[in-house]
Design a protein around this nucleic acid. Sequence first.
DNA 1: ACCACGTATCTTGACGTCAAGATAAATGGC
DNA 2: GCCATTTATCTTGACGTCAAGATACGTGGT
Lengths: 160, 160
Amino acid sequence: MDRVDKILAQWKRERPDLDTEAMGIMGRLKRLTTHLAREVDQVLQQQGLSSSSFDVLATLRRSGAPYRLSPGDLLSMTMVSSGTMTNRIDQLEKAGLVERVLNPDDRRSVLIALTEAGLAAVETAVGLHVANQQRLTQGFSAEEKEQLDGLLRKFLATFE
Amino acid sequence: MDRVDKILAQWKRERPDLDTEAMGIMGRLKRLTTHLAREVDQVLQQQGLSSSSFDVLATLRRSGAPYRLSPGDLLSMTMVSSGTMTNRIDQLEKAGLVERVLNPDDRRSVLIALTEAGLAAVETAVGLHVANQQRLTQGFSAEEKEQLDGLLRKFLATFE
DNA sequence: ACCACGTATCTTGACGTCAAGATAAATGGC
DNA sequence: GCCATTTATCTTGACGTCAAGATACGTGGT
């Protein structure tokens, strides 16, 4: 009987006509990801990064040397609006972790490049971040993790 | 090969030392809940409600008649800060969906009460919302839904 | 009865986000 | 070559959120 069960029991009492099966799954998903986001943020914050900043730095890092992508490339990889991406880049640029480099091939565009400090920051952070993610999932057996991943993959395929 | 697989493949190439199993699960969870939140918001928005507003109205509705809870009660049921709850109540009060009623037993406190308009709004919205949640999970068999719910329950139990 | 402490709510200031629109440069049909 | 259209990025204004602190009231020990 967890918190979501209590919510479902309330609905059962007040609105017995409602089928709460989907509500249970969605409620657990929402609460779970709120908790997970807080745990993830805490580790990144100790490195002086928000999860938004880390998201951009990590995208640049995993794109490979020379660690440069246009704002449009970053946009297509990160599920945020263009205004949000501009803001993220502004913050990272202020912090000296990325710089805007002119794109010689297209003057509408710029390239966002990891600075040395940005590369160093993301290399440290990604190690701690992955270790933290492992910690958060360590309650599951290998089989359960595979099962969960499979179900999430199928669910996600509905949208992507 | 979904988007998360592509991200993991990039990391594999750039940082083969990192174990990406947990990252895959967490990444799918995050992308999935972003998509789900957008779908949920869309239905509620057609009723003139944000998911934040609906969250409060639904909590009041399922608490049963006379549909009154203190801000503190609402806080303990909704994973937000006290400042956020004050703001949510302010918005709902402006919209005429709830009202602040003096608590005769404790003058530090108030009771947040559904108005007639608020009750009507939540009754309509909750039906559409639940139907929408069912639509979003309809790709799964009964067995898969049960499996997913069980895994999420276990995961959530880590935190609650 | 008093007062120190606890409790309940609200305020403030800073962020991160989005939708919509503005700006500037490239492109393609003629 | 010109201009309408498309593309790439940035700007603006509004919202929702939080942490930290302020305010106001209740409570219990003396």
